[in-house]
Design a protein around this nucleic acid. Structure first.
Lengths: 191, 191
DNA sequence: TATCTAATTAGATAATAGTCTAACTAGGTG
DNA sequence: CACCTAGTTAGACTATTATCTAATTAGATA
């Protein structure tokens, strides 16, 4: 894939309204007027955005009478999204190496019965352990504080410290004492 | 807003020289002058690009004497690359439909410079706009009337009407001419 | 045929962004 | 100290882009 198409792909997604359009189209196809209405934009602006999305291959369109319906080309969208990461790191060697290191840390700190022997003080190791602990929590579920405490206590008595670490390192967020997992891309990383 | 970080990520990659920089850094860390040399650009241009790459979290840096070495944060880079595809096809993202409607109203009534074009007369739209306006106020802070007026005037000259709407719709309450934000659950809603 | 609706085009405007030169900061070293 | 090298800041210039209004195309329908 040549540089230009790649840059164009990223340029196309570098606009909030086009991201919004994609999130609408992900639900199902829509025609221009509908998009304009939902976003509070005028028709020519939609024409403009759709041209960019179409030119970069992310969406295609079908005509019905004189109405145009837009669709995401999911396959192309996914493959463009992966193109650059794959180009930059043609070998997955580093990644394997990384998970191996993480496994080693887990082996050191987690006892045979699954409990946490001690909270690592080194940041990198702590992150690895927190990630391991958070594994048993459900994405999208809302946990009252007591439930979180009980969950942590299965691993280690100092639930207050660990609960705080969950928040500090963006594994979870808290609102009105209700805890919920953050999306994984927000979690602290070790690099 | 989560959308912003995502848009920023794509905007950052939407430039050929920044893609070139990444492909250089994928081989190994480099310092600014080396990058400038390899790409035939001047130092200030590299400063500019590296600031964007750093701000969007794709690269980080380490200082050695007065030379700065740049590294790709591979993990973050990969997770950002996957974030949008995952969001779009996770049907959870689409409960944003409500915020999209609100965004449409905001786009229609708030000018590019952030000022309010006119006060909506429809109740639903008015509530959305009031909620938007109240965004810049601090929770728990006590505002004398003059300060509230000045704040509102940044958006619209008719501060008296808007100030009254804040009270009527329970966004704020007043005591001895001191204004304060109400807790969010007291605010008027559109449904 | 006259009219309605969806979409596009053209052109204007205002904001953003990439690049440069020139001037500056700040460690290091002869 | 004087000088060198890496990096940043400020300001100018240019190109690109997001958005709009007004006018236009084209199919559908009463």
């Amino acid at each position: 894939m040549q540089l230009n198409r790649l840059v164009n792909f990223y340029k196309t997604l570098g606009d909030p309204n086009r991201i919004r359009i994609l999130s609408l189209l992900a639900v199902g196809p829509l025609h221009g007027q509908a998009i304009a209405g939902k976003l509070g934009l005028k028709a020519p602006t939609i024409t403009h955005h759709m041209a960019k999305l179409r030119d970069s291959g992310i969406v295609y369109q079908r005509k019905d009478k004189n109405t145009i319906y837009y669709y995401i080309d999911e396959k192309k969208f996914r493959s463009y999204s992966e193109a650059l990461p794959n180009m930059l790191y043609q070998s997955d060697f580093n990644k394997e190496d990384e998970t191996l290191k993480e496994q080693a840390v887990i082996n050191n700190f987690i006892a045979a019965d699954g409990t946490l022997k001690q909270i690592p003080s080194q940041r990198k190791k702590k992150i690895i352990i927190l990630k391991h602990l958070v594994n048993g929590l459900e994405r999208g579920k809302k946990y009252p504080e007591k439930e979180i405490n009980d969950y942590i206590k299965k691993f280690h008595p100092d639930f207050a410290t660990i609960r705080r670490e969950f928040i500090i390192n963006h594994f979870m967020y808290r609102e009105n004492n209700i805890y919920e997992l953050n999306p994984e891309e927000m979690w602290a990383t070790i690099s």
